[in-house]
Design a binder for these strands. Structure first.
Lengths: 205, 205
DNA sequence: TTCATTATGGACACATCGGTCCGTAATACA
DNA sequence: TGTATTACGGACCGATGTGTCCATAATGAA
C-alpha cells in the first residue's frame, strides 16, 4: 500500500503505519481545484481552502506542500480529467459536425447548471500570463493540444479527411471560437446568446 | 481654472490656488491602466503603481481616491480609448472583409511589438467574474457592444447588408473568434499561429 | 506497551497589503 | 507678507497573506 507523496517525502507502505488518513486526498484536491477554477489563484486564500476542504491548514500543507503546489496540482487535474473528458466527448459521434455539437453541448451544460467558471486553462493563462512562465507554457501547450484535438476530430469526415490544410484551418477557427465562447461564459453572456454562437460555430463545419 | 475631481471633492478654481500640480494626471492614469491591463488587479500593488507613475502614494490617493477607483478609471479609459480606437479602425474600409482585416491587424500589431496584454475587458471579466458584479456587468456589456460593432461593420456589404439574420450570425462568429484570439495572444500562442487564425477568421466573411 | 503517523488547536513569525496621518518644503497668488 | 495647495519623506495602522512550530490527543500496527 503506497500512500504516495506527502510533501516531498515518499512514505513507503512497508513501515509501521499508524493512524490512517481520515480524509480523501482526491476529494480534497477536487474541491481545491474548484476553488481555484472559480476564483483564481489570488482570489483563493488558504483560509478559503481550509473552509472548502474542511481540513486544517496543517493537513493541507502536509498533503500538498504549499499553495503554489496546490494550484499546480489543480491545473494538472484539469488537464487529466476535464480536458480528457472533452476529448472523449468529441470522439464519440461518427461525423465531424455532430462531434462539435456534442463538444459545445458539454461546454454549455455546466452553464445550464449555473456554473460559469469557464475554462480553467484560459483563466490561469490570463491571470498568470505575465508572472509565471511555467503556467504560460502550460497554457500555450493547452491551446496547441486543443487545436490538435479539434483537428483529429474533424478528420473523421470529408472533406476534412482528405484535405489536411483545410482541416487545420477549420480546427483553428473552431478553437478560437471555442476559447472565445468560454470567455463569454465567464463574462456572463446570457445562455441564449451562447447557444446562438454555438449554432453559428457548428454551421461553419 | 478647474482642477477637476480630487477624491470626491470638487476643487473650484475661484479660490486662491497655490502650488500647481507637477504631474500630468492623464499620463499617470495611462501608466496605471497599462499596469492593470498587463498584470491584473491583484497582480498590481500600490507599490507597483507608485513605481510606474513615479508618484508617491499620497499623490495617487489624492488624485484617484483608492485602488478600486483607479482600476475603475483604467477600465473606463480602456473603453473610451482602446475600444473606440478599434471602432474607428473597423469603419474605415469600404467593404466588410477589409474592415475585419484591418481590425485583426490592429489586434496583432501590439503583439508584433512584444505586447501580449490581450484584451483588458476579457482579462478583467475573467479575474473578477466571481467577486465583482459591477465588473461582470461591464464585461457583459463590452461583449455585447463588440458584437454590435461587428454587426454594423458587416452591414456595409452584401449579403450582410440585406440580411439581418445572417449579419447577426456572422457578427457573433467573428466576436467569438475575436475574443478567442485575444486569449490566445495572452496565452503566448506564436505569432504565425495567430496570423493563420486571423486569416481563417477573415475567410469566413 | 511502544512507535509512527495523523489530526487538531493555537500561537506566532514575517511579509505585504491598502490606506492614513503628520511634518516640512516648495510653489503661486492675493 | 500670508494663505492655500501640492509634493515628499516617513512613520504608522489594522488587516490579511502564507507558512511554521509546538503540544496534545487519537489511532492502528508491531
Amino acid at each position: 500500500m503506497n500512500y504516495g507523496l506527502i510533501g516531498n517525502i515518499v512514505v513507503s507502505g512497508n513501515r509501521v503505519m499508524a493512524r490512517p488518513r481520515e480524509f480523501d486526498p482526491k476529494t480534497a484536491l477536487d474541491r481545491i481545484q474548484r476553488a481555484f477554477w472559480e476564483k483564481g489563484y489570488h482570489g483563493t486564500s488558504m483560509q478559503d481552502l481550509e473552509r472548502i476542504t474542511e481540513l486544517k491548514k496543517q493537513s493541507l500543507y502536509r498533503e500538498f506542500g504549499n499553495k503554489d503546489a496546490m494550484y499546480a496540482r489543480a491545473l494538472k487535474l484539469y488537464h487529466e480529467r476535464d480536458i480528457t473528458h472533452l476529448a472523449q466527448v468529441i470522439c464519440k459521434a461518427p461525423d465531424a459536425k455532430q462531434r462539435f455539437v456534442d463538444l459545445f453541448e458539454a461546454v454549455l451544460e455546466p452553464v445550464r447548471n449555473g456554473d460559469r467558471s469557464g475554462c480553467f486553462l484560459c483563466n490561469s493563462a490570463i491571470e498568470h500570463a505575465h508572472d509565471d512562465p511555467q503556467i504560460q507554457l502550460n497554457a500555450q501547450e493547452g491551446i496547441k493540444s486543443t487545436q490538435d484535438l479539434f483537428n483529429t476530430a474533424l478528420a473523421v469526415s470529408e472533406p476534412y479527411k482528405g484535405n489536411a490544410a483545410l482541416r487545420k484551418q477549420k480546427a483553428n477557427l473552431l478553437a478560437a471560437g471555442y476559447f472565445g465562447l468560454r470567455v463569454m461564459v465567464r463574462g456572463g453572456t446570457p445562455l441564449d446568446e451562447l447557444e446562438e454562437t454555438v449554432s453559428v460555430l457548428v454551421s461553419t463545419i
